[in-house]
């Protein structure tokens, strides 16, 4: 498994980045390198992923070598250089969720959506992700679809979750 799939420039699915918008985000952090992770997160919120052109623009503006910006962009799980689906399904695999059957739930999502964890469905509707603890362990296993939480899930509830979107 390499990170090469992360590079998405020109291979379709790439959006046109509005540089003025990116500049606005950079300004919000005082054009300070320390804010680079926050800038990337804000850009990702805008485009649902972190477009390569935006990374390059941020680095150029801040005077940070692209290689260093790329390091940050690939280090953190919160950032994705791959376009994501309309909805992100996060299946919690924190300890409590693991013990209470989280792995069975994510496997059922994989079967139901015909994707592997980390990938996006062919119709670009769902991206399936595992996440290490969403901090609602009392409701294990927890599934979060964007902002909506589903507690005490089982493989049986997977269909219902998918249908809700």
């Amino acid at each position: 498994m390499t990170q090469s799939s992360a590079c998405c420039g020109g291979k379709g699915g790439d959006v046109t980045v509005d540089l003025a918008k990116v500049d606005g985000i950079i300004d919000k952090y005082g054009r300070d390198r320390a804010g680079i992770l926050g800038m990337f997160q804000d850009i990702q919120r805008e485009y649902r992923y972190l477009p390569k052109d935006a990374v390059a623009h941020v680095c150029r503006t801040l005077g940070v070598p692209l290689a260093k910006g790329y390091e940050v962009a690939t280090f953190f799980k919160a950032l994705s250089l791959k376009p994501r689906g309309k909805y992100t399904i996060q299946v919690c695999l924190g300890t409590a969720c693991h013990l209470k059957g989280g792995p069975n739930v994510i496997e059922q999502f994989e079967r139901e959506l015909s994707v592997k964890t980390g990938d996006t469905t062919a119709d670009k509707k769902f991206t399936l992700e595992s996440v290490n603890c969403l901090g609602a362990c009392a409701l294990a296993p927890l599934v979060r679809v964007d902002e909506k939480d589903f507690g005490k899930t089982t493989p049986g509830t997977v269909k219902k979750v998918v249908k809700a979107f």
Binding site: T2, Q3, A6, C7, G9, P65, K68, E71, T74
Partner: peptide
């Protein structure tokens, strides 16, 4: 020139040029 950097973390960490493209 900082043409090289690391990418990823953990077992997939590697040395590479940005986006694995010619720098």
């Amino acid at each position: 020139v900082s043409a090289l950097g690391l990418s990823g973390k953990g077992p997939v960490k590697k040395v590479t040029t940005p986006f694995d493209e010619p720098s």
